[in-house]
Amino acid sequence: MFGHACVVAIEVQDLSKVFETGRRRHRRRVDAVDNLSFSVERGERVAYIGPNGAGKSTSIKILTGILHPTQGEASVLGVVPWLDRRRLAARIGTLFGQRSLLWFELTPRQSYRMLAAIYGLDRRREEARIGELGDLLEAGDLFDMPVRSLSLGQRMRCELAACMLHDPEVLFLDEPTIGLDLLAKQRFRELLVRLNTEQGTTIFLTSHDVADIEHVALRAMVINHGSLIYDNEVVAMRRALLSTKLVEVGLSRPAPAPALAGVTVLEHTETTMKLVVDTVTTSIRHVLDDLLDGLPVADISVVDPPLEQVIASIYGRSAV
């Protein structure tokens, strides 16, 4: 239609970033990002995941123009981030979980007013947009409270509104759900999906929480030691890598282990039982029903495999 540039949101080619730390004799090179290449189309919801120190934040900071790369090329919305940072900044939104766009002592609305002026929104546009985001993020009633009085979950919704104020085409989020409780996490994930489907915003999300990937993203990229080690649709990833769940059962009295198809017993004591459920062969619901019927269950929980395990299985697979 309009050619390549209109479809591609992010294009990365052989990107590297080397940090040098320590002084003189103890100088040490760290390859934070190592020959990274990928591309993301407009309207995608991408999870960019990896363990702590894998290079996620560094690459996202290069893509937003905060850091200069050591080598390689990248463009976001057709702009080279580190050469034309300000022009790009006007068209993207960034949310770093640990760093705030909001002023702690002021109300979110006061911060929005400043951001609106910075992004060149006129007052009518500003009012309209704040109203719209207030509805969309169910946060309108929070906008006039001082930020210091908000809970973390409430604050994150206000932060999200702050970085969406100028209607960015791409939204970069770095560990946005970190520190949130389960309910707030779930709600935040739903909002991200809604922003994407209703406003067409491209979502580029880093996390080391497996659930973020499953509930937000359609595509997952896994990075480790600065390089991409996996890139696929989340559906495919789930089939291949996220096919197991861990079930932990607390027992009110000793009981024999159940024999169920697709379930392996990992650990079994008089009061606890740890089971691995293969969700390809059986459904987790089915297993829970059987467990609750057949065992003296005092307590039960289902957890995702940790990211480290997922990454280990990626390596395991690629080694085969």
Partner: peptide, 11 residues
């Protein structure tokens, strides 16, 4: 601590 500033389209 300059990340927040650098993410904005300002001098």
């Amino acid at each position: 601590q300059l990340d927040a500033v650098l993410a904005l389209p300002v001098p």
